[in-house]
């Protein structure tokens, strides 16, 4: 059964884009293929790895599990929204670099987005809260220690 795509309007990173989507297209697919925002990665297509984490109305979600059509009307923010237009990195991004918190980098956009949701809700989270926020982001390279170190450092800085 083939489906005819229809036009939907998605609000991504502060802009509104018309895209063609079918009912079965996921937000991850549409972001990557239609909008060429390839920073959001697909690691499993089942919501199990967190590589595709984006913010949907400020909540961290797996874009591979969000039907593109559901995302109409919601504020979507992807990794591409994190650094400022002039190139200044977000505090989270800079902290991950400073602490050597990634290697292959495939999980990194998802990690940044999960942390960005966390820090927006809670500027100085405990380590436990950091782990809870990142529990859905699988990293195979780093063993997670440096990611926690980076996030802890940010939390400390906000507390002081």
């Amino acid at each position: 059964m083939s489906l005819v795509p229809r036009e939907i309007r998605l609000m991504v990173n502060g802009n509104t884009y018309p895209v063609q989507a079918r009912g079965c297209d996921s937000l991850a697919q549409v972001l990557r293929d239609a909008l060429n925002l390839t920073g959001t990665k697909v690691g499993c297509n089942a919501g199990e790895c967190g590589a595709c984490t984006v913010l949907l109305d400020d909540r961290a979600v797996c874009a591979c599990l969000v039907p593109a059509m559901r995302a109409e009307g919601a504020q979507i923010r992807t990794i591409e929204s994190q650094a400022e237009d002039g190139g200044t990195l977000s505090a989270i991004q800079q902290a991950l670099i400073d602490h050597g918190a990634f290697q292959c980098g495939f999980c990194t956009p998802g990690v940044v987005m999960s942390l960005s949701a966390l820090f927006a809700q809670c500027p100085s989270p405990t380590e436990h809260a950091i782990r809870v926020a990142l529990q859905g982001n699988v990293c195979r390279c780093s063993g997670y220690s440096k990611i926690i170190e980076a996030a802890n450092a940010l939390a400390q800085r906000a507390a002081t």
Binding site: I79, E80, G105, T108
Partner: peptide
């Protein structure tokens, strides 16, 4: 030195075969 690809990876601009 930080990783040379750091900026590209942390901003999502790095291009992998998937992309």
């Amino acid at each position: 030195a930080p990783q040379k690809e750091a900026l590209a990876k942390v901003t999502g601009r790095a291009i992998y075969t998937h992309d």
